[in-house]
Design a binder for these strands. Structure first.
Lengths: 149, 149
DNA sequence: CATCATAGTATGGTATTTTATGGTTGTCAA
DNA sequence: TTGACAACCATAAAATACCATACTATGATG
């Protein structure tokens, strides 16, 4: 199953936030009932995925030379930064404060589905980003706009 | 299985609408008993497909590369905008209000088959669109008829 | 041929469950 | 002892399951 859609949920005083029901469903066949969160490397947001995917990623890095620069980067940047957060009985997680700060999130968290992964944004930041992306997508794909001739 | 034909069904006060029986049959071999809806990027209508197709799309664009900007494209826009809606026992779905508004749909929904995907239109909008398309096709007719193969 | 029976479909209304959210208590460790 | 954190309890609103009815097409039967 995939992470689809965009849902905004409140973060309470203790940092608790409900993971959207559909997102939880996307992990229901996994061993680990929770999600993995880490800094995005390309945007001002938090990225997330399933434990299953993390394991796949780990398998992929196994193929690299142990001392290669790439492996060093992956290990230090991804695995050391990733946190596993399990759902409580009502489906909530507590997002670590440094991640919230990095993404500029305070009261509300915007969960954005991206298929195999998802992101958590400050709403204003996301809308800014999305606007840019839309423009880029249309520029790069003129074939989508009206095909005359 | 393909989405074929054009069927008009009523939307009730809660946004519920019967997905045409033939369309439901087109998903009967899938794991997920429902459809994925998202707003069209080219027309004033809702677009839909199966979860299976979404997963294929996800597999095609998923390269496990966390540093790539390449995923900032139309596909990611689709994933963040897509809603998974499962059929109830009588074969209905609830179309989210914002999608209905985007497509200008109020009381009735026109399901239009497009093979691997389908669209949901306001009937008037669709007829307008269809008229324009016919005129365009007629204008371009000479170039069409000279194209061999 | 007219009528009846049947099965699948569309549609409307109500009841139940799930979800998101807030608060309280208990526990362990610094 | 205090502060962090997990487990537990509560509730309103939203989503969904459930039930009932009407309609359609089709086929069987007298």
């Amino acid at each position: 199953m995939l992470f689809l859609g965009t849902i905004e949920n409140k973060i309470d005083a203790k940092g608790r936030v409900s993971v959207p029901s559909d997102f939880r469903m996307a992990t229901k066949n996994d061993d680990f009932q929770g999600v993995i969160l880490y800094h995005s490397f390309t945007h001002k947001c938090i990225e997330g995925c399933t434990m299953e995917r993390m394991e796949k990623l780990s398998d992929a890095t196994d193929n690299l030379d142990l001392f290669s620069e790439e492996n060093e980067n992956l290990n230090s940047l991804i695995f050391s930064d990733a946190r596993q957060l399990s759902f409580d009985v009502t489906g909530r997680i507590v997002i670590p404060a440094d991640l919230l700060e990095f993404a500029g999130i305070n009261g509300n968290a915007l969960f954005v589905g991206r298929g195999k992964t998802f992101q958590i944004w400050n709403k204003d930041e996301f809308e800014k980003y999305q606007k840019e992306t839309r423009e880029k997508a249309f520029k790069n794909r003129p074939s989508l706009s009206f095909k005359k001739d």
